[in-house]
Simulated assay, not measured.
Amino acid sequence: MDNPSPPPPFKLSGSELWPSVRAGLGVLLLFAAGLWVARQYAEPLGATLAEHSAMGIAVFLVSSAVAVLLPMLTNLPLLPLAVLAWGPGWSALILLTGWVLGAGLSFVLGRHAQGAILRRFPSVQRHAEIDRLIHPRHRLLSLIMLRMTFPVDVLSYALGMFSRRTTLLENLASTAVGGAPFAILFALFPTLSGNAQWAVFGGSLLAFVLYTAWVLRRPEPASPPEGN
């Protein structure tokens, strides 16, 4: 009996990438606005957050989870304020915890409320072949790489809806591992000097442009030979 051939590589077009690019640019602008506010009003904001620390942590944690559940929202403008109040370490941990919680809820909703999600967010349908991006023998590594390249607020819905082989535990673990570098980077960014911030921003932008160019220039998957 012939061994089944591996799934063909998945190719994204420019029109499929554009929503993610547009959303990423919007998040960067909002994050920059939050950074400016935190610097301009550091003393009064720091005093206020110190007086209401528990409430501030709860709001930041819940908003991090909600930002994953609702693709049109982001709480990254709050991150510079969180760093101002609790430092980069705790801020990164709270942010990542919220992402993991949100990813878990998104996965469960995708698994059990597919019809309602498609009616509300029909664009998720373009990820119906998400399993083609997951290597059958290296599933967790594939999911971690997807977590680091796909929008965090889309992937968990797509996995829950269209990937029957992916488990909730795999989704949570890949979110924690794949999201950790971004949570740390975002939390450390407000503590850097102006020149260092521009260097990180420029390097990240260059890496994203190179990755996007590589994705767009990948060859179309070859058709399997007939008669096998």
Rank of each mutant, 00 (worst) to 15 (best):
A58T: 13
A54L: 14
T48P: 00
A58M: 12
S53L: 15
A85T: 01
G115F: 05
T74A: 14
P44W: 06
L76Y: 12
L101F: 10
P71T: 12
A47V: 06
R111G: 01
V62L: 13
G98R: 06
L70Q: 04
A54P: 00
Q40H: 09
H112C: 01
L105F: 09
Q40P: 02
L78F: 09
F60S: 06
Y41C: 08
A103R: 02
G115E: 15
Q114P: 02
S106E: 03
P71Q: 09
L61D: 08
L81Y: 07
A113G: 06
V66S: 08
L30A: 10
A103Q: 02
I94S: 04
G104T: 05
L101M: 13
L69H: 05
S91L: 05
T48D: 06
G56H: 11
F31Q: 01
L93D: 00
A103S: 12
M72H: 06
V108S: 07
A47R: 14
L93Q: 00
T97N: 02
A42W: 12
P44T: 08
F60L: 01
A32S: 15
F31V: 03
R111M: 00
A47M: 10
V37L: 15
M55Q: 12
V68Q: 14
L70V: 15
S64T: 04
P88G: 03
